[in-house]
Amino acid sequence: MRNNYGEYKGKKFYITTAIAYASGKPHFGNTYEVIMTDAIARFRRQLGQDVYFCTGTDEHGEKIENLAAKQGKTPKQLVDEVAGTVRALWDRMNASYDWFIRTTDDYHEAAVAKIFKEMYDRGDIYKGQYEGWYCVPCESFLTDTQAEGGVCPDCGRPVERKVEEAYYFRMSKYAPALIKYIEEHPDFIEPESRRKEMLNNFLYAGLQDLCVSRSSFKWGIPVSFDDKHVIYVWLDALSNYITALGYDPENGDAQPDKFNKYWPADVHIIGKDIARFHTIYWPIFLMSQGLRLGQDVEVEGQHHLRRRYGGQDRRRRGEILRAVRDAVRTGRQHHVGVRRGAL
């Protein structure tokens, strides 16, 4: 037992998972992340810390709009179902989250629209035209280098070419400050290999301005002053970490107690496929708003489900998970025990 164990008593601890994309059943990575984050949250509570554990669902975007149409539903109907499934699964796993946010929640949508407008008023967002490679499943734009070979570097699916009018965020303006921050805070991105990757592969090479709006589909938070556009799903989703605490730009210096108490985040637990968004875009969005950066982004490895009983089919992971639990017919708590212990 360490001597300084008592130093944690009473201290706040804000921990988050990435919010699960609500296009279908939660995948293995989502579930692993929640259980892992829950273990950390519960541990911190054991130490006597004042823990706030936030999770939720990410519900806008072209992918969901298309999927809903295919299934003959409205996007809202689809995400309502999926959010219900996700939450039920987290509950079944006995995850002790303090807040479950949905990006279709009205307080979130209102706050994000204001965040976007303020960034525009501040000159960090400007209107331009975009033509480039885009990966629909990952909802991310890619440079020519990244999209080399015609496939997305994160998920491997074929990329599309997109041309449209769009709003841009001045990433280039903040890159130097972010590089400095990462260099001065070695624990900001863990593990070390990820930190190096972000610096070498993305930051040192120079950041391009980021497209932050779309006009080719409707299912998203509208840009309040230009309703032909909806806000880029990642700016929307990443903001959940502050809107979940009640952050609203309108409040200025008088943010709600929950925000003042818990922000900045002590740790964001994420999978490596979204490292870029959390370690580059997110800190820069925070810098633009004059908010403090989080303490730590923990980047987890991914699971590969091997050939025999699952292959690498992401969709099946959630099902496989449930099958594992259901197959252990020894009572409910033991289901959770197996699943949690098996990690």
């Binding site: 290999s193 991914q302 699971h303 590969h304 489900l305 091997r306 025999r308 009983y309 496989i320």
Partner: peptide, 8 residues
Amino acid sequence: AQDGSITW
């Protein structure tokens, strides 16, 4: 810091 592999 690594990827894991899970089989039944």
